[in-house]
Amino acid sequence: MRKYLASLTFLFVTILVLAMAYPIAESEYTPVPEEQEEAPLTDSEAFDQMMAVLTHKRCVNCHPSDNSPKQGEDSHPHRFGVLRGTDNHGMPAVRCNTCHQAENNSFSGVPGAPEWSLAPMSMQWEGLSRTEIAKSMLDRARNGNRSHEDIMHHLTEHELVLWAWEPGVDAEGRPREKPPVPKEAYITAVKAWFDSGAIIPEE
């Protein structure tokens, strides 16, 4: 109890000192509502941030343009000739789940997340530009007949997508590279972009 009082006193003194050091005239102080603290993301900023993630290898490695998943920071074809298979979950006796489980494995360095698999052939992104990826994503013929709303949820909530920010370690215990935008900022950007109509800029 004595200790508690001592720290309280210390805290009080600190505040007092700080207050004296930074005298702010009441007239100069205008409270800023939190949501207006910074200008909202422009459409183009939102698009940039979203695409910085979606073009990252953590995403594109599993959206290949052929039947070969890609791996690693250099996006090389998956070792041992691993293939897509008819259901995007691998060959009959070499399933994705033969090695990849629902979580990363820190012993082997094999990454994992629920539903670990390739995106379907129609959703190939490898080699595509940002706008091409965006168009593909919004195209019901290619995106699995998903609405904008569905896509937004997929991009911001699906565990396999969000795995990109918890990619674990590789076979040598080195952390995998994360996408260049923090997860929360990415989610904000995706929502902002869809909220403002999912406009794909000219490039």
């Binding site: 006796a93 070499v94 399933r95 033969t98 489980q101 979580e103 494995n105 012993f107 082997s108 094999v110």
Partner: peptide, 10 residues
């Protein structure tokens, strides 16, 4: 019944 590599299976 599925082939699994047990060194990477928690």
């Amino acid at each position: 019944g599925e082939a699994v590599r047990s060194c990477s299976y928690a």
